[in-house]
């Protein structure tokens, strides 16, 4: 506990706040990496996930690949990439994008899959085109699961972006590496605490987002029939998601 207190004291020490080496700069670097990674990963994973979810094709291949990717040790990947592209942002960004894709992908396609087939049949029956089914039915109804996927991916990226400093990209990892090297435990704890706080903020924002974006009808159904998010396999540690369609239960 004493050590924890020293960690907080390190954070509140004004000497550690400003400048190139200050907490402000490190947090911005950390968030910058996270943001860039999430944008790139989303641009790749969401369309791909929607395609898989809508067509139902290629799912098993993607699930197998995602499993393999999850087992990739990020530091090994960063080192390998950095040995060819050099130090700086590129290597950690690529490695973290690889890390983030499986969760987002799973959120995207499982969101589509969670839509009751009868809802889609009904949409087709009332004359919607395939495009309309995607944009007006599957995307909105799949949104909570997609956000769940984004939420867990962000959490992973924030936690793992500490490795970016290994190849000179800065971020909060600096405090952890530097603290470990000099046995400066308060500094190392301070770095960890800041990472955890970023994670908490991200969790809070995503939970607000999830609440505000779930379509009204689905919320009603959810309240009537609380159902566990059934995460597991493809999506891990994402926020509380609920079964989307009341009808899916029976």
């Amino acid at each position: 506990m004493n050590l924890l207190f020293e960690g907080f004291a390190w954070i509140f020490d004004p000497a550690h706040h400003g400048g190139d080496e200050g907490i402000g700069t490190r947090i911005l670097q950390h968030l910058g990496i996270t943001l860039v990674v999430m944008v790139i990963a989303s641009l790749i994973a969401i369309p791909l996930g929607y395609l898989i979810g809508h067509t139902g094709r290629g799912r098993s291949v993607v699930v197998a690949l995602s499993g393999g990717v999850r087992a990739l040790p990020t530091l090994g990947v960063i080192s390998l990439i950095a040995l060819s592209v050099g130090i700086g942002f590129t290597a950690p960004v690529i490695a973290l994008v690889i890390l983030a894709i499986p969760s987002i992908l799973a959120g995207a396609y499982s969101g589509f899959e969670a839509v009751d087939r009868r809802t889609i049949d009904a949409a087709r029956a009332v004359g919607m085109t395939e495009g309309q089914i995607v944009t007006r039915v599957e995307v909105p109804l799949g949104l909570p699961l997609l956000i769940g996927g984004l939420r867990s991916a962000t959490l992973q990226v924030i936690a793992t972006a500490t490795l970016a400093d290994y190849v000179g990209a800065g971020g909060l990892g600096r405090y952890i590496f530097s603290g470990q090297a000099t046995n400066d435990y308060p500094q190392m704890l301070a770095g960890s605490i800041l990472v955890i706080m970023l994670a908490l903020v991200s969790e809070a924002l995503f939970s607000l987002l999830q609440r505000s974006l779930v379509p009204a009808g689905v919320v009603a159904a959810e309240q009537r029939q609380p159902d566990g998010e059934t995460s597991g396999g493809p999506t891990r540690k994402s926020g509380p998601r609920r079964s989307l369609i009341a009808g899916a239960r029976r």
């Binding site: 950095a82 040995l83 050099g86 400093d165 290994y166 000179g168 600096r174 590496f177």
Partner: peptide
């Protein structure tokens, strides 16, 4: 100052 945490290994030399 740029951190490269491989203790003067190949990453540092490449930089």
């Amino acid at each position: 100052f740029t951190a490269v945490e491989d203790s003067g290994g190949p990453l540092t030399v490449k930089a």
